[in-house]
Simulated assay, not measured.
Amino acid sequence: MIRTVLGFRQTEGMLDPLAAVRTPQDPACDVYLTGTVFLDIIFTGLDSAPVRGTESWARGMGSSPGGVANMATALARLGLRTCLAAAFGDDVYGSYCWDSLAHGEGVDLRLSRTVPGWHSPVTVSMAYEGERTMISHGHEAPPPEQPMPGLPHWGVPPARAAVASLVPGEPQEWIATAAAQGSRIFADVGWDDTGRWELAELTDLRHCEAFLPNAGEAMRYTGTDCPRAAARALTEHVPLAVVTMGPDGAYAADGRTGQTAEVPAIPVEALDTTGAGDVFTAGFLMGSLAQWPLADRLAFAGLAAALSVQEFGGSLSAPGWSEIAAWCHRVHACPAQDPAELCRYGFLRVLLSDSERPWPLRRAVPTIGFRQLP
């Protein structure tokens, strides 16, 4: 059975990771997002990089909403009530992305809009040799003619949390608005093309609860040569710093308590790393809202990212509870597993104790344009 709660679709039997902490006074939205939605077209099965002047054939292809949709999908598949404010083109690509997110993934798009005459941004991703090359095209969407009715300035709804991508030297007013309304801000950051790497230019960091850069970004911003030292240095500017270290796992430092935690990565064969950072952030945010211990949050985020990189695509590969439950069952059934390693993920066995639950899958259709003939 599917029911609607204040615009959020809920499926009967779907695991709610926040069930133990929800109260009637909580906002309807768990996580608020805003950003650009791309149509991602992913070519897979390439033996090598394309060569100029030649034609390359891929053995596989998929399409899915990308950009901020990667994060929205990752959050929704973990059972969080996710609200996305974004512009969608009024072309076929925009309609496909809207339908995939709203109906395939259960993302609330009440704050999103379709822009007449504006075409959807597109990214073509080519995965080969464990790497990816991307080509993108698009134009900035025109601003809305008027704010959404019934919402505060910048149209930011009350939410438990919000995810922001910080831009050096470019403060975003909605972040301060969300924080003032009580949202917990979880932020990442992209590569600083200016080469300055000045923390002072990340002015919105003062509104954030957690900052989740990768090791290279963290060390450049802090002038350190160690990801762990970088995380500790960042706690002078943000309460919680989480530094991802690729195959070496992740390290977190909480400046409020002095607590630190480190979890190694799960060794997997990575096919496509698109969206892995979004999946990691979604998993860590979910564990934070569920009030899990810091080490458990890191372990879960790393597991979710490890599951995602074994499949192609960004939003397509984001794991839901069905994939997480299947992984737990598989590793605990394997007699060769190190008992100490299994203990690290023991907290999931309690959450997934109802192993016979008919885990429903909410999935976007990964191909555009199949038409049913009469």
Rank of each mutant, 00 (worst) to 15 (best):
H207D: 04
R256Q: 12
A252F: 04
D272I: 12
A241V: 06
H207Q: 11
L234W: 06
M245D: 08
W197F: 05
V279F: 01
A200V: 14
A253R: 06
T244E: 01
I266Q: 12
A230N: 02
L240K: 11
G246F: 04
D272A: 08
E236R: 15
P247T: 14
F211C: 03
G255C: 09
Q259F: 05
G277V: 03
R232M: 12
F280S: 00
A230I: 00
G283T: 03
T274W: 01
V243Q: 02
M245R: 14
I266S: 05
W197A: 00
R256L: 13
T260V: 12
L234M: 09
P213E: 00
I266Y: 12
H207F: 15
A229P: 06
G277M: 00
R256G: 01
E201D: 14
Y221R: 09
G216W: 10
T274H: 02
R206F: 03
T244C: 06
N214F: 12
D278L: 11
T274A: 03
P267A: 12
E209C: 11
G246Y: 03
Q259D: 06
A200L: 09
A270K: 04
G246L: 02
A215F: 11
D272W: 10
P227V: 02
E262R: 12
G246P: 12
A231K: 09
H207M: 03
V238I: 13
V268M: 13
L205S: 00
A229F: 07
L199F: 10
